[in-house]
Amino acid sequence: MTYSKLTQTLSRVSKLCLSLVLVISASSLTLNEAIAAEASGFRARLSPMPTTPQTKNTITGGGEAVASLAGNRLTLTGEFAGMSSAATMAHIHNGPPAQPGPVVAALTATAGTSGKLSAEIELTDEQVAALKANALYVQIHSATNPAGELRGWLFAQP
């Protein structure tokens, strides 16, 4: 979907973001609703990093992040829960869907097995292009999974 097409569907995005925000947290509702109304929205479902029968009980949890882009400014909030150990770091990475890539920026994450994510980031033009090509993703690292426990690609919301 092109950027202009997205802006034509702002009201739909706004409604969708509102419902997502309700899921995420009451406190960030106003902020996200406001952002959604004036910018393009993205969403990532956070789910466990690649697992095997041996690791499925040690790479766990889920969550959601929503992000909006105004110019090159990306505002992201999110929530996660059920990780096997406390979050240590969270990042945005650059890689096309299902293909890992390098870190773009750090996120603020609650140092717990559940909590919140947030970030305000000035993206480069290349990073904005990557975002619009579904090629930015959120990854949360934990004490027992330093290589990452939760991950999710940001997709433009229809």
């Binding site: 479902r45 789910s47 466990p48 690649p50 697992t51 095997t52 869907p97 299902a98 579904n134 993703y137």
Partner: peptide
């Protein structure tokens, strides 16, 4: 060796 994960963009 293989590991498995959700398909991005499918909402799980």
């Amino acid at each position: 060796s293989r590991k498995f994960f959700e398909m991005p963009g499918t909402d799980g």
